[in-house]
């Protein structure tokens, strides 16, 4: 008897079951939703009468999110602080980037489009922390409208922290392209991942025409960038980052040649990034020889089954660098 009665008392004292708890909550403080429900019409929206076609909802998120505020002075200042104070130190620890090829940007002036391959969410903050002056704090990022601008919270954060503007990945939408072109004309540079999304398996995806289109439209050069190693920090599907060394290689700026449409320019861009990938894995001269011979290993993987693709990825990881002998201190 004693044994049975004790649990009963406990259930009574502790709100173990949902019911007594809910009751308690409703009694103590009525929910806001409940209050609104109880309020009369002017205080709450009218219900839509039957038989009336409702207006389409005004979207404030996704591709329609207005990011102009994020390019005004207070937001920019906040972003500089964020990048310098948090993003860069975090990236130094997490990604320890080795940046190469910055000298190729020496002769550039004005806005440019940076086009990089895309493995991981780390790519964006990493690139933001390594893109050199004068572009570093004058850059906007084309981010997937559906992913980054899905809700108002993510949209606000994306716009503020990384200076993102929404780009629809599936099509070149008039409005987002117009907006981007306007920004470039205003002197803003762009960071775009032409693959349209993160690599699912370590291999690249075909480059889409957005960056190429913008370059031709605004006649600004595209700087190809290859990022290596971020897939090991935060691959698609993982949420806990693992510190790894990364290499960011900047390529020589490209411009569309006469009569080159954006599709062909995108292919050329992809080849340039593939050459950079080759350069960062092997050495520059070997990569140039392969590039001229047309034997640069493509970014996109072989048309194979999933496991064989995964298998082949490992072959491409950077060779271990020979340890350099210490150099004498020459005073």
């Amino acid at each position: 008897m004693a044994r049975a009665s004790r649990p009963t008392k406990l259930t009574r004292k502790l709100p173990v079951n949902g019911v007594p708890l809910q009751a308690l909550a409703s009694m103590a403080k009525p929910s806001a939703a409940a209050l609104v429900r109880r309020a009369p019409f002017p205080l709450r929206p009218a219900s839509i009468p039957q038989g009336v076609e409702p207006l389409p909802p005004v979207k404030r998120t996704g591709a329609d999110y207005d990011t102009a505020w994020a390019r005004r002075y207070p937001a920019r200042a906040a972003r500089v602080l964020l990048v310098e104070g948090i993003v860069r130190p975090a990236m130094d620890v997490l990604a320890a980037p080795e940046v190469r090829g910055l000298d190729r940007l020496g002769d550039l002036e004005g806005p440019v489009i940076f086009a990089a391959n895309h493995h991981s969410h780390v790519d964006t903050p990493l690139l933001l922390s390594v893109v050199p002056e004068p572009w570093q704090h004058h850059i906007v990022i084309g981010a997937a409208a559906d992913y980054f601008f899905g809700t108002r919270v993510t949209a606000t954060l994306s716009a503020l922290v990384i200076g993102a503007i929404p780009i629809e990945r599936t099509r070149v939408s008039r409005s987002s392209a117009d907006e981007a072109a306007e920004l470039i004309d205003d002197g803003w540079s762009f960071l775009i991942f032409p693959e349209g999304g993160r690599s699912p398996d370590g291999w690249g995806q075909p480059f889409r025409g957005g960056a190429a289109y913008l370059s031709a439209r605004c006649s600004v050069p595209v700087v190809p960038i290859h990022v290596a190693g971020t897939d090991r920090i935060l691959p698609k599907g993982k949420s806990v980052p693992k510190p790894t060394k990364t290499t960011v290689t900047f390529g020589a700026p490209l411009r569309p040649t006469d009569g080159e449409d954006s599709r062909r320019f995108a292919v050329r861009l992809e080849a340039a990034v593939a050459a950079l990938a080759d350069e960062s894995r092997d050495d520059w001269y070997t990569a140039r020889k392969r590039a001229h011979a047309g034997t640069t290993p493509p970014l996109q993987g072989p048309e194979l089954g999933a496991w064989r693709r995964a298998w082949a990825v490992d072959d491409r990881s950077p060779k271990r660098r020979r340890q350099r002998r210490r150099w004498p201190d020459l005073g």
């Binding site: 090829g101 000298d103 050495d283 001269y285 350099r324």
Partner: peptide, 20 residues
């Protein structure tokens, strides 16, 4: 020339492609 001086003269890409 030291490694640093060679790197400065010919650039890192060329240095890394040939010096090793």
């Amino acid at each position: 020339m030291t490694e640093a001086e060679l790197r400065h003269a010919v650039g890192d890409r060329v240095y890394e492609a040939f010096a090793p």
